[in-house]
């Protein structure tokens, strides 16, 4: 590797790349994609509510007549421009109890949010523990007696094992 090549992929260059990416991401994340149109508001609200005659399909997805009717009502209220999204959601939810598609974060319902996080933490935590155990095992030093035992059973003097080379 020439020095020019290695300097191209050196830490400062990587750090610069990282900064560029972060800056662009922040710019893009905060960028205003324009005011949402009425249709987008209707779609967004419809995605938060379940169709009352379906099996958990949202009003956005369902083609059932009841869903059509509720979509019309949402469109009517959005066009009237007097209610905020949450108010419209509450209006529908009041009349069709249980249609809120996002379980609330209270009581038993909160479990559905908490348990995945717990499992994720346990998963990676378990992995970390496993790696620590493996590293500890690997660091166990061979005693003289161990070396002698191995040499004896191999019938050779100590032979160095070829490590796996850096390969794919």
């Amino acid at each position: 590797m020439s020095t020019k090549q290695s300097s191209l992929k050196s830490w400062p260059v990587w750090a610069a790349m990282g900064i560029i990416v972060v800056v662009m991401l922040v710019f893009g994340a905060l960028r205003d994609s324009g005011p949402s149109t009425q249709a987008e508001r209707v779609d967004a609200i419809a995605q938060r509510l379940a169709c009352p005659t379906c099996d958990g399909e949202s009003i956005y997805v369902s083609r059932a007549p009841a869903a059509e009717a509720i979509r019309n009502e949402i469109a009517r209220q959005v066009a009237a421009g007097q209610s905020a999204d949450n108010e419209i959601v509450a209006y529908i939810e009041q009349r069709f109890p249980g249609s809120l598609l996002l379980p609330r974060a209270e009581g038993v319902d909160s479990l559905v949010w908490i348990l995945p996080v717990v499992v994720l933490v346990l998963g990676f935590g378990g992995l970390a523990l496993a790696f620590r155990k493996w590293r500890d095992e690997a660091e166990a030093q061979a005693t003289e007696a161990d070396v002698a035992l191995v040499a004896e059973s191999l019938g050779t003097t100590e032979s160095s094992e070829k490590n796996d080379r850096d390969d794919d």
């Binding site: 005659t53 009841a66 019309n72 009517r76 529908i92 009349r95």
Partner: peptide, 13 residues
Amino acid sequence: PDGTIAVSFGVAR
């Protein structure tokens, strides 16, 4: 026709 009345009562079925 639009189902507005049904929705305002909360009638789905």
